[in-house]
Amino acid sequence: TTIEWNGTKITVDNPQKAKELAKKIAKKLGLTVKVHGNTITIE
Rank of each mutant, 00 (worst) to 15 (best):
E4I: 15
V33F: 10
T2W: 09
T11I: 14
L29M: 08
E20T: 13
H36C: 15
D13R: 14
G37E: 06
T8I: 15
G30R: 05
T32R: 10
I10N: 01
K28A: 12
H36G: 03
A22R: 02
K28M: 12
A26E: 03
G7I: 10
G30F: 03
I25C: 09
K17R: 12
A18T: 02
G7A: 06
Q16E: 11
I3Q: 06
W5L: 07
V33P: 02
T1K: 05
T1A: 09
I10E: 00
T32S: 10
K9S: 10
Q16Y: 13
I10S: 01
T32P: 05
G7S: 07
I42F: 13
W5N: 02
Q16K: 14
H36L: 11
K17L: 12
T41W: 14
E20W: 15
T32N: 08
I40L: 08
N6H: 12
G7Q: 07
V33A: 05
V33K: 00
A18W: 07
G30A: 03
L29P: 03
H36Q: 12
G7N: 07
N38V: 05
I3L: 06
V12K: 01
T8R: 14
N38S: 10
A22K: 01
A26D: 01
G37H: 05
K9F: 11
A18H: 01
K24H: 10
L29N: 05
K34C: 12
K23A: 12
A26F: 08
K9C: 14
T8Y: 15
K23W: 15
T41E: 05
I10K: 01
L29F: 15
A26W: 06
N6L: 12
N14F: 04
A22N: 00
V35F: 12
K19T: 08
G37M: 05
G7R: 05
N14Q: 03
I40A: 01
T8D: 05
I40N: 00
G30H: 07
K28R: 14
N38R: 06
H36S: 12
G7F: 10
H36F: 11
G37W: 04
K27N: 09
K9G: 02
N38I: 04
K28H: 11
V12F: 13
N14E: 03
L29K: 05
L21E: 01
K19H: 12
E20L: 15
L21Y: 09
W5F: 12
N6Y: 13
E43S: 13
H36I: 12
N6Q: 10
D13S: 14
L31V: 08
G7T: 08
K19Y: 15
K17F: 11
I10Y: 08
K34I: 11
L31R: 05
K24A: 12
I25R: 01
I3G: 07
K28S: 09
T32H: 09
I25T: 01
T2F: 09
L29G: 03
K17Y: 12
V12T: 04
I42M: 07
K28V: 11
K23M: 14
K9D: 02
T39G: 03
T8V: 13
A22Y: 02
Q16V: 12
V35Q: 07
V33S: 02
E20M: 15
K34S: 11
V12M: 12
Q16M: 11
T2E: 07
K34A: 07
T8N: 13
K17H: 09
A18E: 00
T39M: 09
A26C: 05
N38D: 07
T32W: 04
T11C: 14
T39A: 06
G7K: 06
A18I: 04
N14M: 03
I25V: 02
V12P: 01
K23T: 11
T32A: 10
K27F: 09
A18Y: 04
I3M: 05
A26V: 03
K24R: 14
D13A: 14
K24P: 00
E20N: 11
T11A: 05
E43V: 14
I3V: 09
T41H: 09
L29V: 03
N14P: 06
T11G: 02
T39N: 06
I10C: 14
K34R: 13
E4F: 13
N38W: 05
K28C: 12
K23P: 01
I42H: 01
G37K: 04
E43H: 10
A18M: 03
I10G: 01
T41L: 13
A26P: 00
K34L: 08
I25E: 00
T32Y: 06
L31W: 10
K34D: 02
K9E: 04
A22E: 00
H36M: 11
Q16H: 10
K28Q: 09
T2Q: 09
G37P: 02
N6M: 11
K19E: 09
D13H: 12
T2C: 13
T39H: 09
T41G: 02
E43I: 14
V33T: 04
T2H: 09
D13I: 12
K34V: 11
K17G: 04
A22H: 00
E4M: 12
N14A: 03
E20P: 01
A18Q: 00
G30E: 02
T1E: 05
T1R: 05
T2D: 06
V35M: 10
G30D: 02
V35A: 04
I42R: 00
T1Y: 13
A26Y: 06
D13W: 15
N6D: 07
G30T: 02
T8M: 15
L31G: 12
N6C: 15
G37S: 03
W5T: 03
E20A: 15
A18R: 02
L21V: 05
A22D: 00
I40C: 02
K27T: 08
N38A: 07
K34E: 05
G37Y: 04
K27W: 07
I10P: 00
T1D: 05
A22V: 03
T11W: 15
D13P: 10
Q16L: 11
V33G: 01
G37V: 03
V33H: 01
A22I: 05
T1L: 10
K34P: 00
D13E: 12
T39I: 12
T2M: 09
V12R: 01
T2P: 06
E43M: 14
K9V: 12
G30V: 01
L31Q: 03
I25P: 00
K28E: 10
K19R: 14
N38F: 07
D13Y: 14
N14R: 03
W5R: 03
L29A: 05
E43G: 13
V35C: 06
T8Q: 12
N38E: 03
K24D: 04
T8G: 12
L31K: 04
K17T: 09
E43W: 14
I42K: 01
T41Q: 06
I42E: 00
N6A: 09
K9M: 09
G37L: 06
L31F: 09
K34G: 02
L29T: 10
V12Q: 02
P15Q: 06
I40M: 03
T32K: 12
A18V: 03
T32E: 06
K27Y: 08
I40E: 00
A18N: 00
K17D: 06
L29S: 05
V12W: 03
N38Y: 04
K17I: 11
E4V: 13
I10L: 07
V35D: 02
K24W: 15
V35S: 04
V12I: 13
G7H: 08
L31E: 01
I42A: 01
K19D: 03
K27P: 00
T41I: 13
T8K: 14
L21H: 02
T32I: 12
I3S: 05
K9H: 08
T1H: 09
E43C: 15
E20H: 11
E43F: 15
L31Y: 07
L29D: 02
K27R: 13
N14L: 04
K23V: 11
N38L: 07
G7P: 04
T2I: 13
T39K: 09
K34M: 08
T11E: 07
H36W: 09
L21W: 14
T2G: 06
I10M: 06
D13M: 15
K9L: 08
T11V: 14
N14H: 05
W5A: 03
K28W: 15
Q16R: 14
D13N: 13
L21M: 09
T32G: 04
D13K: 13
I10T: 02
N14K: 03
K23D: 13
V33Y: 10
A18P: 01
K24S: 08
K23Q: 12
I42N: 00
Q16C: 08
T41R: 11
I42P: 00
N14S: 13
E43P: 05
T2L: 10
I40K: 00
K34Y: 11
E4C: 14
P15E: 08
D13C: 15
K19G: 04
G7C: 15
Q16F: 13
E20Y: 15
K17N: 06
T39C: 09
T41P: 00
K27D: 10
W5C: 10
P15L: 13
N6P: 08
L31I: 07
H36D: 12
T32C: 12
G7W: 10
T41Y: 15
I40G: 01
K9W: 09
W5K: 03
W5V: 08
A22F: 04
K19S: 06
E4N: 09
G37I: 03
K27I: 09
N14G: 05
N14C: 08
T39V: 13
E20K: 14
T32Q: 10
T1P: 07
T39S: 08
Q16P: 02
K27A: 11
